[in-house]
């Protein structure tokens, strides 16, 4: 016999955090671990550990991507992995003074889109070793790789190339518009 009219639901003493009672606003939390596969892009992340930046080139039309992309958006054919140069130029840049919650402790940080000789598209990365006023379109920059990999695209980052100060600025700092 399993019928029990005196059954009582177990209660917890965890309680609930409340922000307001009218309307009733409570705290609710959500967190989850993903088993995230980089799948066909895995080689890019592995190569960063060998200080190599990998892009892709179309086997058919030879369009060169500075990002991993196993099929060509121009013609649909398969691409192959190709090593990118470690020297590039700033195509565009910004300095983020605010950001998403996870990145707030890292602000301010610089973002750059990098162009490479011989490649048709760009690569997005962080740049350190320069402030907002130091960066300019066309600035020569160099890839550096973290020794301790986190298997994230931030395992590679860029720094200004030696002697990359803007020619027009004598003290290396020029207020840009």
């Amino acid at each position: 016999m399993t019928i029990n009219p005196d059954a009582k639901m177990e209660e917890s003493q965890n309680g609930t955090e409340i922000y307001s009672t009218d309307p009733l606003v409570v705290k609710s939390t959500y967190s989850i671990d993903y088993i995230h596969s980089y799948a066909q892009d895995s080689e890019f992340f592995r190569a960063l550990g060998k200080k190599k930046l990998m892009g892709s080139r179309c086997k058919k039309c030879h369009y060169g991507y500075a990002t991993p992309r196993s099929h060509c958006m121009m013609c649909g054919a398969e691409t192959e992995w190709v090593e990118l140069p470690t020297k590039g130029k700033i195509h565009s840049y910004t300095t983020c003074y605010f950001g998403s919650e996870v990145f707030l402790p890292q602000t301010p940080f610089n973002l750059v889109l990098v162009e490479f000789d011989g490649f048709d598209s760009l690569f997005m990365a962080r740049l350190i070793g320069a402030e907002q006023e130091d960066m300019y379109v066309g600035m020569p920059i160099v890839a550096k790789f973290k020794r301790l990999q986190s298997f994230s695209p931030t395992d590679v980052y860029f720094v200004p190339a030696k002697g990359s100060e803007q020619p027009s600025s004598s003290n290396g700092k020029k207020k840009r518009r």
Binding site: Y38, T94, G99, V102, F103, L111, M124, P153
Partner: peptide
């Protein structure tokens, strides 16, 4: 989320780079 989010993770940052290039 494999390539852009972990680097920038901020839409205003992406638009700022576009604005800088438009200015250039």
């Amino acid at each position: 989320t494999n390539f852009d989010y972990p680097v920038g993770g901020f839409y205003t940052g992406y638009y700022a780079m576009m604005a800088v290039r438009h200015m250039h």
